[in-house]
């Protein structure tokens, strides 16, 4: 089942005299249960693509369909609703709210919803348990390590039970051991909870575990051929 589809999406930024072509016609499909990994040099347009696929931003040209609906036809309110219900975001810099504790941060996306606060609370506690932070629920972000903060962010991304989670360099600010744990956590969520993940990363190792792998270069997205290109990447890395 296709969750999100992009058709010839371009994104152009005009900065005075210069124009930046961040995306040059990207077509892609995200299927339910995918564990997609996108690699590529910085500035190649990975974040831009992720924001557009996640209904945070609109393409200059082309079309994005979420559940078959064109997002260009939706207003701000409907987009917010899609982000709230269908999509979770995880950022490199966590973006937690410093005055709230871990649990409250996790519950932030439920704020606009009506319904039982108690139910959300229980769900939040369960999610923090799932990411291994049961004991640290009432700590403020400043009292948590980087890895713990990112786990809070993951729990926050999952609180509204989205179909798909976008993670933009989720391990970029973490040491490799902590990063691996975070990736494992996401992989488990993909296997056990059937969550769809789209992960942008510099870490080429992730390509090994991806169900679909892409490389972004100069605003163009290309599929990495299963055996050929991966080997090339890993060879490069081990040199």
């Amino acid at each position: 089942m296709t969750l999100i589809e992009s058709k010839k999406v371009t994104k152009v930024y005009k900065l005075g005299m210069t124009t930046v072509h961040a995306l040059r016609g990207v077509s892609s499909q995200i299927e339910k249960g995918d564990f997609i990994v996108i690699v590529g040099p910085s500035g190649s347009g990975k974040s831009t693509l992720m924001h557009i696929l996640g209904a945070l931003d609109k393409p200059s040209e082309g079309e994005v369909l979420i559940d078959g609906k064109k997002i260009s036809k939706l207003d701000e309110w409907e987009l917010a609703m899609i982000r709230r219900k269908k999509i979770g975001f995880i950022f490199q810099t966590f973006n937690l709210i410093p005055t709230l504790n871990a649990l409250e941060n996790v519950l932030i996306p439920t704020e606009p919803l009506d319904g039982e606060q108690e139910d959300y609370r229980e769900r939040g506690e369960n999610l923090l348990d799932l990411v291994g932070l049961k004991e640290r629920m009432h700590h403020k972000p400043s009292e948590l390590s980087g890895g713990e903060r990112q786990r809070v962010a993951i729990a926050r991304a999952l609180i509204n039970d989205p179909e798909i989670v976008f993670a933009d360099e989720p391990t970029g600010n973490l040491d490799s051991l902590t990063g691996d744990k975070i990736i494992n956590l996401m992989l488990n969520l993909n296997k056990e909870e059937k969550k769809t993940f789209v992960i942008v990363t510099h870490n080429q190792d992730l390509l090994k575990i991806a169900s679909k792998k892409f490389i972004m270069k100069d605003g163009e997205l290309s599929k990495i051929d299963r055996n050929h290109r991966v080997r090339k990447f890993t060879e490069k890395r081990t040199k």
Binding site: E76, W77, R83, F89, N95, I108, P112
Partner: peptide
């Protein structure tokens, strides 16, 4: 700015 951006990213709309 960044915090408000992430609130929007997690689905807060303008009213909130």
């Amino acid at each position: 700015t960044k915090e408000i951006g992430s609130l929007k990213a997690v689905g807060w709309n303008n009213t909130q």
